[in-house]
Design a binder for these strands. Structure first.
Lengths: 189, 189
DNA sequence: GGGAGCATGTAACGGGTTACATGATTGG
DNA sequence: CCAATCATGTAACCCGTTACATGCTCCC
């Protein structure tokens, strides 16, 4: 019986455990692919090396169990599965831990903030690149959404992918407005 | 003459140098207050201890100079000022370094993503709290915007505070929509 | 045969946080 | 006088990344 006053796992561990919580038996490699195709759009995707480390930690805590892949499958492959204790821990976290405020590190905004030091053309190009990046992310989320809607147990992920699409849509519009404001500022001098 | 192929400073150093780039002579404490009242809305506010460390680093690189506060002012107080080299370095960074994609770690989205493990009421409360947080941030940005507009050399910061206000406005609306979607999902069961 | 993708890891590093320590100044 | 705020810093810690190493399997 682990976890007395469990000092709450780091975000990455929770995220990995969360991926396992959909019930599939996954290798570290699989977890990385999942992360890349879903949570990386609104959270982030840990480095492979850390995923393996987190899986070992989760197993150590009894939140996941693992077994070697059956013969015929790639040798050395290890499959992880969430345990009842792991599911309990996730539920506990969702219920008890206050939601941390979203972390936003917006390098583009920082650059505009420092506009007095930048060449106007570079600045504009930066914001335009960001606008295109938003379009790109929105497209990624559409694909992710399509996948989620096929699976009956992915109702919540589908909600979030749709939320994410709207988010990047809005971000794109904000970039568009920013370009106008930048133009105005340059005109007024 | 430092900086040959300068390995580009970490974000915190750039942010601190950016704060100094508005020309004021600031103490570490002042820098922290500035960060809290402006860039923390779209970037983030480093811990005090780190700000002091970054200021020392910047001085070591020749990007900032410092002097003791004049007598009559608090003893032990140290004031930092950006140097020409520091301004050059910032300009170089804005021009040459590709803008890093925004980092978003949205804990609320992650929680909804794991909705299959959560109690519906808790989930709703989480999203509602997030909506209120957005309102709160938007208000903070309005205040920040008002301050920026008073200063003639804060045109770019004013642009960004306005952008930020719109951002949190949009985030709030997304939270509102999410609540509706959550309701729908619960109704369909 | 060889390259792309599968699969797992180690080691070193650095960035950033928390917790703590210290002391001065100011205002009620 | 006492609390709040000003002001600066040290030490320990851990999270996460990068870079690297290794070897397999599948397919052209």
């Amino acid at each position: 019986m682990p976890a007395k006053d469990a000092p709450s796992l780091p975000p990455t561990a929770l995220a990995v455990l969360g991926i396992l919580s959909f019930g599939r038996e996954l290798s570290g490699y699989d977890v990385k692919k999942w992360a890349d195709s879903s949570i990386r759009f609104f959270y982030w995707s840990p480095a492979p090396s850390q995923i393996y480390a987190e899986l070992r930690r989760l197993e150590g805590l009894g939140y996941a169990s693992s077994r070697d892949a059956p013969d015929g499958d790639a040798r050395g492959k290890r499959l992880y599965k969430i345990t009842a204790a792991g599911r309990r821990e996730l539920r506990r976290w969702l219920r008890d831990a206050p939601a941390e405020p979203p972390v936003l590190k917006h390098g583009v905004a920082l650059r505009v903030w420092l506009g007095h030091l930048a060449d106007p053309d570079t600045l504009r190009a930066t914001v335009e690149a960001h606008r295109d990046y938003c379009t790109h992310m929105a497209e990624g989320l559409e694909r992710s959404h399509a996948v989620a809607e096929e699976q009956p147990d992915f109702a919540y992920p589908a909600l979030v992918t749709e939320w994410g699409r709207r988010y990047y849509e809005a971000e794109r519009e904000l970039a568009e407005k920013m370009l106008v404001d930048l133009e105005d500022l340059a005109a007024r001098g």
